[in-house]
Amino acid sequence: MSSFNQQSIDQVSNNAEVLDALFSDVRSDEPGLIDQNITKVVLNTLPKKVIRTRKRSVLFDLVGLTLGLIAAYFFFDIEQIFVSSMSLIPESLSITVANIAAFFIGSIVLAFVAFWAGEKASK
């Protein structure tokens, strides 16, 4: 190995040690920053409208679902909807490449829509 190469390796090794020593110094010397009204400013900036907590969120969803079901019972002909829905189911189903492709594409689209709606709702 040439002396030049050895010197380069020594230099790199030396720099690595210097870097570690530098960060070691900084770490041990890290100042504890005094709270210069940061807490006060943050608390004053928090949204006034209280975020919905997990329990409350579930409660809202359950109440909404119940009210929706009650409204549906009085305003819609449930029996007719059921019969109409059942009539949509085909008596026989032929499995073709086109059907499978349509099924997968439909599933993917629905999954994306559900994901997007979930992400939007969580923001």
Binding site: I34, T39, L43
Partner: peptide, 11 residues
């Protein structure tokens, strides 16, 4: 409680 968390982690 959140204020205490801010105070604790701000530095």
């Amino acid at each position: 409680a959140y204020g205490e968390l801010v105070n604790r982690h701000q530095s």
